[in-house]
Amino acid sequence: MKLIYSRPKSLKKAVFHYCPGCGHSVAHRLICEVIDEMGLQEKTLGIPPPGCSVFAYNYFDVDMAESAHGRGAAVATGVKRAYPEIVVFTYQGDGDLAGIGTAETIHAANRGENITTIFINNAVYGMTGGQMAPTTLCGMKTTTTPYGRDHLLEGHPIKMSEILALLEGVAYIERVAVNSPSNIRKTKKAIAKAFQMQLDKRGFSMVEILSPCPTNWKMSSVQAWKWVDEEMAKVFPLGVFKDVTEKKDAD
């Protein structure tokens, strides 16, 4: 009999603490599958953030080192510069990467740090209880935008993939989602490609994952999955924003 489903080797046997329907669980699993398939379990260092994924080190069976809020890219820079043989990835939420850590992220990308970033965009601060994130959609009500996000006061949702794609140091950026089987397959491919970029020393690679947060969106899991397609993906279109390997083919 063919084995069609098993726990990835680099995923620890532990029950996720995430809420039901949360995108973090899926993203964790996909990263582990990629690490397994590329044979990287023993060479990888993961850097989880403060956020709902603060306990990510309980799930990934690879080396993991927590960073301070928003400083993942800086920590990864230090790691990779000091020990280039390691495969390093940061795992960051939208508050982490696009709020408090914008400076670190942009400058690491601009320096072309040879690191991989997994960016979980769930349009809210999950861990702290559903406050506005830099990626919160206009009109969306959160606990700190009780009247809905108003772009005149709070700005528009920030599009990190688009912004970072402008930087010379960036090798690969793709935005994906984990809200349907086909999207999940694409997400896995993107993560694999991002890690490959690092192995090939091409520079900064990032996969932005649109990820449901049913708890803070106050929706059922199914509603949340739908909402990703119907609302979120309109503001954050899926697709590849930069791929230096493609560019090479062109010239």
Binding site: F16, H17, Y18, P20, V54, F55, M127, T215
Partner: peptide, 8 residues
Amino acid sequence: YGAEVRGG
């Protein structure tokens, strides 16, 4: 409050 209440 906080992480204790994740997971419902």
